[in-house]
Design a protein around this nucleic acid. Structure first.
Lengths: 134, 134
DNA sequence: ATAAATGCAAAACGTTTGCCATCGG
DNA sequence: CCGATGGCAAACGTTTTGCATTTAT
């Protein structure tokens, strides 16, 4: 099931994108990434960033995070994990516990659909924002 | 916690939107709703549909569903429930089991965030699409 | 050499806004 | 009557596309 299709041309722009995501603790959106990449490759175009994020996520080298009601964000591919998003500032943090099939099993008897996966995102208020409100 | 703020002007366009959502088994997107509403009110504008869906969901009369990586969809407000989405055709179906705080409690010790909620969506293949692939 | 990837500009997409006219309470 | 709402068109933010040029393999 793991797609090891790394038959992907390794261009300068892709190397830079991967490099940034590798050393990046955050989960940048495409335009944030674009700003970061432009520091190394000032004339890269935003379209290239989008195209490459698509290509790299198809190749399994980055993960595309699609959250509800906001921009897509990107991640270097590591172990599968859940995320929590701050409802105030949008910041996204990893959660340590790894997803299992337990949730999907629970819903099996409730639907005619063939269940293939699930998305779980926690919503909360991050420590920074909590401090501000106080 | 339940926002009973129904101090909302009941206009013709809002009545029609509510009416359609009431008799609607599906979870239409704003533009699908726009097409449906136009059968009754041919000169309503899409902006009005959007503004009213906002207003009505603020008033607690409809629910705005924000799924990952796709258009918002709308729902008459009833009991809280999860959804499953077909990865092939995008169709959304309700799941009977009601969300609890159990999931949030589980993640409490894993984060510094103050957890305020969660989104869970199941992904699958609906019976219709499964038939087609066969 | 050649298929794939780039940069650029323009389009597409879903959604929101500003404006002034109209309507509902 | 007055403030809330409507219709319209234009703007918006994000993402995609067409096309001629360049690049990696």
């Amino acid at each position: 099931m793991v797609d090891m299709a790394e038959n992907i041309k390794m261009t300068r722009q892709r190397r830079v994108i991967l490099d940034i995501l590798d050393r990046c603790e955050t989960h940048p959106s495409a335009d944030e990434l674009y700003d970061l990449v432009r520091k190394k490759l000032p004339k890269i175009s935003l379209a290239t960033v989008y195209r490459n994020l698509d290509a790299l996520s198809e190749a399994g080298l980055v993960r595309k995070l699609e959250f509800s009601g906001c921009q897509k964000r990107f991640d270097k591919t590591v172990l599968d994990h859940y995320h929590i998003r701050c409802q105030a500032c949008g910041k996204i943090e990893d959660l340590p516990s790894e997803p299992g099939r337990g949730i999907e099993r629970k819903f099996l008897p409730q639907t005619e659909f063939e269940i293939t996966g699930h998305n779980l995102e926690l919503i909360g208020i991050c420590p920074d924002c909590r401090r501000k409100v106080r």
